[in-house]
Structures are given as structure tokens and as C-alpha cells.
Design a protein around this nucleic acid. Structure first.
Lengths: 71, 71
DNA sequence: GTTAATTGGGGTAATTCGGGCG
DNA sequence: AATGTCCGAATTACCCCAATTA
């Protein structure tokens, strides 16, 4: 039996996100601390990231650098 | 009709909770042992978790970390 | 060249994972 | 097959400081 709760969303570990961006896991942690990426915490304090958001951020980085960035 | 499912009493297995947090089932068991999450026992000694509580714990850790939190 | 921000590495403690067995 | 419990290894969090980048 493999019934999952309705809005079970795919979560990624810091290492997995780090590999996608080609940075070390610690850098991903800094992004979370800086509020640049949202994250949830396991009950032990470790972070998990939404795969959808990570991929969105990853693709934003491929946009033209001429694009004005609001921030 | 089941248009009003009593979510508050729905119970989840260790595996289901583990998938929601992106951890392995054993880790969820550890959280129960540490008292970080309440659980009930089946007559066979296995644990079950309240979906409402799990969801609450899951959403507590969401959002940017630089947002102030009202305690 | 200087200033400010980001990234990476070291170190330690806590958490998580994986294997084995009941 | 899923779960419970114990142990050792890997991952992560958090600290500080140097190197790289804009």
C-alpha cells in the first residue's frame, strides 16, 4: 500500500540542491538563512527544500543578465 | 458523502510521515521516542501519527527564516 | 584599488541514515 | 512487507576566517 497524502510535495536535501547548483551544501544553507529560498525543517532541525522552487530558481539563473531584477 | 472527512482523527503510518518530511521511517520513530511528536500505538506495538499534528509541524518550518515570528 | 557581498574550508555537536536482528 | 530497537557512518547545523567575485 503506497497511498500518499494529497499534497505530498517532493522535497530535496541540502546536498541534492547543492549538486544542482554546483555549490557546496553549506552555501545552500546560507541561501535559506538569507531568505533567498524557502525551506522546511525536520523535527531535528535539518532543512528540506521544495523541488519545484529549486528548479524555478535554477531556471531564473538562465535568464538574460540584462533583465532588470527587482529586489 | 465523504465531503467532510474528519482529518483531525486521520492517522498516518511512519512511512507516510517520513515521505512528507523527506526522511526515512526510522527517523520518524526517533522523533516519537524523543517526544517531538505524539503517537499512539496499535495493539501490535506499531506507531500511528495524527495527520493534523503532522501537517502543523510541517508548516511550522515553512517560510523565509528572516521573518519575525510571533510566539 | 577599495569596498561589500558571496563562497568555501575547518572544527564540533547534533541529527539522520543504513545495516542487522527480533 | 512494515515496523521496533541498537550501533556505526554520513550528513547537516552552526561557529569563525580567508579567498574569490562584483
Amino acid at each position: 500500500m503506497d497511498s500518499h497524502p494529497p499534497d505530498a510535495e517532493r522535497l530535496l536535501t541540502p546536498s541534492e540542491v547543492a549538486k544542482m547548483f554546483r555549490v557546496v551544501p553549506k552555501t545552500v544553507t546560507r541561501w535559506a538563512q538569507a531568505g533567498k529560498i524557502s525551506s522546511i525543517r525536520t523535527l531535528g532541525g535539518h532543512r528540506r527544500f521544495r523541488e519545484a522552487e529549486v528548479r524555478r530558481l535554477l531556471e531564473e539563473g538562465f535568464g538574460s543578465e540584462d533583465e532588470s531584477r527587482v529586489g
